[in-house]
Design a protein around this nucleic acid. Sequence first.
RNA 1: CGGGGUGUGGCGGAGUCUGGUACCGCACUGGCUUUGGGAGCCGGCUAUCGCAGGUUCAAAUCCCACCAUCCCGACCA
Length: 407
Amino acid sequence: MRQSELFTKTLRESPKEEVSINAKLLSRGGYIDRLMAGVYSYLPLGLLVLKNIENIIRDEMQKVGGQEVLLPTLTPKENWMKTDRWKYPEMFKLRNRAEKEYSLGWTHEEIITPLVQKFVNSYKDLPVYVYQFQNKFRDELRAKSGMLRGVEFMMKDLYSFHRDEKDLDSFYLRMQRAYFNVFERCGLKKETFLTLASGGAFAKYSHEFQMVTSFGEDEIYLCKKCKIAVNKEIIEEEKHSCPQCKSKDLEVKKSIEVGNIFKLQNRFTKPFGFKVKDEKGDEKELVMGCYGIGLSRLMGAVVEVHNDENGIIWPAEVAPFRFHLIPVGDVSKEADAIYQDLQKAGIKVLYDDRDRSAGEKFADSDLMGIPNRLVVSAKTLEKKSVELKERESGKISLVKLAEVKKI
RNA sequence: CGGGGUGUGGCGGAGUCUGGUACCGCACUGGCUUUGGGAGCCGGCUAUCGCAGGUUCAAAUCCCACCAUCCCGACCA
């Protein structure tokens, strides 16, 4: 993409409302724009990042056998009455002109369960794993911290349907591994810990994926031996010891939840009367699991972790571009050629073809955080090379023109 | 929803205490000179000072209600 054609611009200063690092840098870099508290637009660069995260998650969900759907955002009151969740305070409610009541989707068990029920009649149809990417709406009392707690936010939610608990348990473990793959590919592996949380009425525990960070709004108790954590509600029950190894040597850390998986058992299949025939022809109630990741929160979390005083430092797989090509001086012809070459090879490159000073381009490049900066100048061209600067390490090297695609 | 803070050109700020009709930087625009870390000079455009009442000869400034927004708390992906 030619930077001169990008309709957004970087900002020298961040909007005064933004206090969190993620919102400051994402706003300044031209990734997002705040419409109101807790609600953001994704600008072209931001959408590229969001789609990269989406593709990572989609890839991992496909690997465990997930089938992608897209459910409505507008949902009827009846479904929520059936499960007694119409009363939930964070649910946005609205009426049409005939006074019929609806809510905006904040989670989708009430929609997916009767949907799958329409098609699944036999144990032979199971298991089923269905997921979607969708904006969710939650009437938070206080939206805050930029992308970390929004009122409207992008979420992946997967729902699994099983004939029995044993099947649910084994899939649940596969999802745990899939989630770690997602966080690893987003550059958050080191900071992210499986965390035991309350399982509600139907399971001893649910599991959160908590990312340890100073800006976190949660607190976890981390066992260094097991690399597993428990959240605040569990720590009391476990008498301040690790539920796995019983060690009392737990470290308190601030953290943010980047994912959550939950065994729902029959919480939703029961009210909808979702049963299938087993081998004997008897009716059997299904069990369910649900598995969520907030994509927009994840995007913010990546920025909170991967930045320096000059701006964002995107991990390779979520970066909007692989290269930031910057001509310095009168070398537009040669830079154009390199750009075309990279484009043809299908390599994602942002080409700063704007008529700006070198310093401004470098500052913007650091702010935007594209992993590899390629500078083309008379100096580098003398050596038939471009200068490569890695955003993360700051390492600078000369790369022959013929070798650029191999970086 | 409780406590606290803030609303001034597109963005960031000064001016408010002490009332006299709005200033600075950035951005934008025209010209010339620049071109490896947010260039320089000259000229130009952009504001019913969040909104509504009130006090006053006169309100960005004082009073009041409302709205928006941020932080802390409670609640939550």
